[in-house]
């Protein structure tokens, strides 16, 4: 096996964006495909795009280049998927949001507020014995904040998973209405 292909088989995270027709059962088709083909999905988010009737899905998949290449090609084959773009190697903005409920008392509340400040997060709910922190940022920033907050009793946590958009005009070659290339 050549050095080149060894490098290609290294497992890592890939970020892929897909545009789907907003019809019943379409998300089920996508998720069913991931399950059937044994793709290891780290996170998946879906919501409206700028085009009415088209949803935008961002998913992060763990695996080598070969596996993500297969995931992209198999997604193309779904009739309701209008476009797929692997943005792993492109300059892109990748963001995630987390809500974290932390147990605090009068002595720890200000510490938590300081951390929140450093991480440019916000406190969005306060009660006598807890606060809810809202953090938006890159995945590793959220990871880091969560690690610090776990030193206080962390009561509850939810993360949205990554949403992503390429920078500049790179990749903005369509609104998802037409595939650049389709595999059937």
């Amino acid at each position: 096996m050549s050095t080149q292909s060894t490098a290609n088989t290294l497992a890592r995270q890939h970020t892929v964006v897909a545009w789907l027709e907003d019809k019943p059962g379409v998300l089920n088709r996508v998720v069913g495909l991931f399950r059937r083909r044994n793709f290891n999905i780290e996170s998946l988010t879906v919501g409206p795009s700028e085009t009415p009737g088209i949803s935008r899905l961002t998913f992060v998949v763990d695996g080598d280049d070969h596996m993500v290449d297969q995931a992209v090609k198999q997604l193309y084959k779904l009739v309701n998927v209008t476009k797929v773009e692997n943005i792993t190697h492109k300059p892109a903005i990748k963001r995630e949001m987390a809500l974290v409920r932390v147990k605090v008392d009068s002595s720890t509340r200000s510490e938590v507020m300081q951390l929140v400040d450093i991480y440019r997060a916000r406190i969005v709910d306060v009660s006598m014995d807890s606060v809810v922190v809202q953090a938006v940022g890159r995945q590793e920033q959220i990871d880091s904040l969560l690690e610090l907050l776990s030193n206080y009793p962390l009561l509850e946590m939810v993360r949205t998973g990554v949403v992503a958009m390429t920078r500049g005009l790179v990749g903005r070659n369509g609104n998802g209405k037409h595939k650049r290339r389709a595999a059937l």
Partner: peptide, 8 residues
């Protein structure tokens, strides 16, 4: 015309 189905 299927947006997501155009044989290559």
């Amino acid at each position: 015309t299927l947006a997501g189905f155009s044989p290559w």
